[in-house]
Simulated assay, not measured.
Amino acid sequence: MTNETDTISLTMSRQLPAKPEQVFDAYTDAEKQKIWFSILDEEPGIVEIDVDLRVGGQQTAVWGPNRDELFTETQVFREIDRPHRLVTTSTGSTPDGQTMTTDVVVTFEANDGGTLMTAIQTGFPDLQTRDFFNQYAWVGAFDRIEAYLSR
């Protein structure tokens, strides 16, 4: 049985200036993520990331401006095909305790000397949340990864 939140999804893509292996590793390697997560921030905040990159393993990211305002995201790896495809179930929580679980498929396709990275995220609870991820969350992630790969 399918519920209506399964149909609230988004697809975002960005052309990035690196080979698929480099983009995949930037997206999945904890030490690289710690750099790009805060690369565009004027004030250093808190970024803690732990990755067990295997099917059934998980990545936990905790970030925010200070200890009282932390966001947490835990992704369970369901499929890993380096450097082409990554499938996860993502559960995020906000500092005020709201949580959301979605499914995320990220692909890394060699394109025009770089990589077309595409994220498909499904299972949003409502259109407003999907629109936030469409306008801010994924745009911010792509901006940061691009800045990291361009430096």
Rank of each mutant, 00 (worst) to 15 (best):
residue 58 Q to S: 15
residue 111 N to E: 08
residue 46 I to C: 00
residue 88 T to I: 12
residue 122 T to K: 10
residue 40 L to I: 04
residue 41 D to V: 04
residue 137 A to M: 14
residue 71 F to Y: 14
residue 44 P to D: 14
residue 113 G to L: 05
residue 57 G to I: 05
residue 55 V to P: 07
residue 117 M to I: 04
residue 102 T to P: 03
residue 59 Q to C: 05
residue 89 T to Q: 15
residue 55 V to R: 07
residue 13 S to N: 10
residue 63 W to M: 12
residue 130 R to S: 01
residue 77 F to E: 03
residue 55 V to W: 07
residue 98 Q to N: 12
residue 73 E to Q: 14
residue 52 D to Q: 09
residue 50 D to N: 10
residue 31 E to A: 09
residue 99 T to E: 15
residue 25 D to Q: 13
residue 141 A to L: 11
residue 97 G to D: 08
residue 36 W to P: 00
residue 12 M to T: 11
residue 64 G to W: 04
residue 3 N to G: 06
residue 60 T to M: 08
residue 123 G to P: 05
residue 59 Q to G: 00
residue 34 K to E: 00
residue 76 V to A: 09
residue 57 G to E: 06
residue 22 Q to D: 13
residue 121 Q to V: 09
residue 76 V to C: 03
residue 92 G to T: 15
residue 134 N to H: 13
residue 38 S to H: 03
residue 86 L to Q: 08
residue 30 A to R: 06
residue 29 D to V: 02
residue 63 W to R: 03
residue 93 S to L: 07
residue 120 I to E: 10
residue 3 N to E: 12
residue 81 D to F: 02
residue 63 W to H: 05
residue 107 T to Q: 04
residue 90 S to K: 09
residue 94 T to A: 12
residue 110 A to D: 08
residue 134 N to G: 06
residue 134 N to F: 12
residue 149 L to F: 11
residue 123 G to N: 06
residue 124 F to K: 06
residue 84 H to M: 01
residue 34 K to T: 02
residue 70 L to V: 01
residue 11 T to M: 08
